[in-house]
Amino acid sequence: MTLHPKIAEALASMPAPPPGPPDPQVLRAAEEAEVVLPEERLPLSKVEDVKAGDVPVRVYTPEEADGVLVYFHGGAFFLGGLETHDHVARSLAKETGRQVVSVGYRRAPEAAYPAGLQDCYAAVRWAVENLAVEGKTLALAGDSSGGTFAAAVAAMAHDDGFDRITHQILYYPSLDLDFDVDRYASLRENAEGYGLETAGLKPFNAFYLQSGADPADPLVSPMKRKDLTGLPPALIVTAEHDPLRDEGELYGLRLKDAGVDVTVSRYEGAGHGFVQHFSWIPEYHRVFGETREFLNRR
């Protein structure tokens, strides 16, 4: 299937990126300029900014919340935040009926590895201690680099004997930070013209890698983990026109081979980032309904 026409139209209208390496401050400002005004946001029963220890989190409570979903935003480990992904967290809360904890973890390059990952894990521990999760869902979810963190935190919790996590939901995750273009066919197949481009993977992730994150470390590249047994049931959402598509789908196969209950769902016509940028399109908004169904059936 070709790229969805509304996505193609939006990409065609975007200005060319400035020359030279990415500038975190410039890119953050551009992303934050697109944030929807508070009065225009999806209403929920309660939205509250609090601290999970030292970590800022935003807690979204829908009517009759049943369980908790801890959400890690994407942004190549240096972009994104509570505001830029507020609409994703609101949709997750409304459509799944879970209380959502969106985590404002520390970002590269200001914070060296593993600061952001530690913040995500700390927020999960805080949720167990402070929210009503006893006997209920405690899910992790993340998009792109947030999916990296979700997979890594699930592994950390398993290794620590912390068995409270019931689900992991990875939206077009970045699972292998070795960006050799011959590792996955989708890195060549979807190299250009679909938003995220293969040539941009190294420079955009450089801030994280240069802060001390080693691509050979399974907590940096969850694909490198040898033993995937015992990890929580997983929903892995991929996009047809995403350079990262194949690593997400391979991770799903490896989880299945390890005995983990896995659903891999490819969204045709979509590119990387569609949950954040294009979930207003009905064909892609259904990702929230699929997330709800995944949480409900287990």
Rank of each mutant, 00 (worst) to 15 (best):
V50H: 09
P43V: 06
V35R: 03
V59R: 01
L44W: 01
P38K: 07
E39T: 11
T61V: 14
E64M: 10
E32W: 05
A33E: 13
A65F: 07
K46M: 09
E63F: 08
V26I: 14
D54P: 09
E32K: 11
P56A: 08
E39W: 03
V35S: 03
V57H: 00
E48L: 15
K46I: 03
L44K: 02
E40H: 07
R58L: 07
Q25P: 03
L42C: 07
E48I: 06
K46R: 15
K46H: 07
S45D: 13
K46C: 11
R41P: 10
P43M: 09
V55K: 00
L27A: 02
A33K: 15
P38W: 08
R58A: 05
E39H: 06
L42G: 01
V35N: 06
G53V: 07
T61S: 14
A33C: 15
L44C: 11
D49E: 15
E32V: 03
A52D: 03
V55G: 00
K51S: 13
E31N: 02
R58M: 07
R41M: 11
E34D: 11
P56G: 09
K46T: 12
G53S: 10
L37Y: 05
P62W: 01
E34R: 12
L37P: 07
E31M: 10
L37W: 04
P62M: 08
D49S: 15
K51A: 13
E31R: 09
E39P: 04
P62E: 01
K46V: 08
V35G: 02
R28P: 07
E31V: 02
V47N: 05
E39Q: 15
D54A: 11
E40G: 09
